[in-house]
Computed example of a mutant assay.
Amino acid sequence: MVEDIPVSRIVVESGSMGRVAYARMAPNEDLVQGVEKLCLAEGFKNAFVRGALGSLVDACLGTLDGQCQHVVGPAVEIVSLAGEVRSNDDGSLCASLSGVVADTQGNVYGGPFVAGSNPICMTFEVTLEEWLPGQTAN
């Protein structure tokens, strides 16, 4: 059964793309928090993930029932990564990242990455593109 999305939850936003940042994140840094730190360092208030390459020590992916699916490494490979970073009203940033990972036996898992639970294995490269929302009419 497909649930109808209430009109009040639909948001359409116009804007433009800004700068691009390509960075390498260090071992044992958390994937989600590292992307947030990268945006802070570059002055991005909002951004989209445009590409990524690397592996995690272990992975923790959120499930529909609010639990965490733990994928044991070492070297859980990230097959794909997508997501965005948005600024909160207080100026803090929140990354919402989802992806597909493969364990050492080749089994694949997908879902949202849980912040604080996805340490980078050796290195991790990520490309972010700044999003500049347009002015809203009052």
Rank of each mutant, 00 (worst) to 15 (best):
E29M: 14
D90G: 00
S96P: 01
V101D: 02
W131V: 15
D4I: 11
T63V: 12
G15W: 02
T123S: 13
E130P: 00
L40A: 14
P133F: 00
V76Q: 02
V85Y: 01
E130Y: 03
V85F: 00
G43N: 07
W131K: 08
K37S: 03
E77D: 03
S80P: 03
V85E: 03
S98R: 11
G18I: 12
Q69P: 06
L40S: 11
D30N: 05
A115Y: 00
A47L: 06
G134W: 03
E84M: 11
A102R: 15
R50W: 09
Q33N: 10
R19L: 09
D103E: 07
S92M: 01
M25F: 02
N28K: 13
E13V: 15
G99T: 05
P27N: 09
D103Q: 06
V126Y: 04
G54D: 08
F113M: 03
A115F: 04
R19I: 03
E130Q: 09
V114G: 01
P74I: 09
L56A: 06
F48H: 12
N46P: 00
D65E: 14
S96V: 12
A102L: 10
N46L: 08
L132E: 07
V108R: 15
F113V: 09
G15K: 04
G51V: 13
G51W: 09
E125A: 08
K45S: 14
L132Q: 14
Y22S: 15
K45I: 04
E13G: 12
Y22C: 15
A102N: 10
D30Y: 01
L97K: 01
D90L: 00
Q135R: 14
N118K: 04
V71N: 04
G43R: 09
L128D: 00
G106N: 01
G111S: 05
V7C: 04
N138V: 13
R9T: 13
S117A: 15
G116P: 02
N46Q: 12
V57K: 10
E84I: 06
T123Y: 06
G66E: 02
S98I: 14
V79W: 02
E129V: 13
E29R: 10
T63A: 11
S96R: 11
L64R: 15
V114I: 15
R24N: 13
A95H: 03
V79E: 07
V79S: 05
T136K: 12
T123P: 00
A82H: 11
F48Y: 13
R86I: 11
A115M: 09
G83F: 03
V108D: 03
D4V: 15
S87G: 05
C60N: 10
G134T: 01
N88P: 07
E125M: 08
V49G: 05
E130A: 06
V126A: 03
V20E: 08
N88I: 02
G110R: 03
S16I: 09
V12T: 08
G43H: 07
P74A: 10
T127R: 08
G54H: 06
L132F: 00
V76N: 00
V79K: 08
L38D: 06
G73V: 06
Q135C: 06
E3T: 12
P74Q: 08
P6C: 04
E125F: 05
N138Q: 15
M1E: 12
G15D: 06
N88C: 13
E13K: 13
V85M: 02
D89V: 06
G134R: 08
P74N: 09
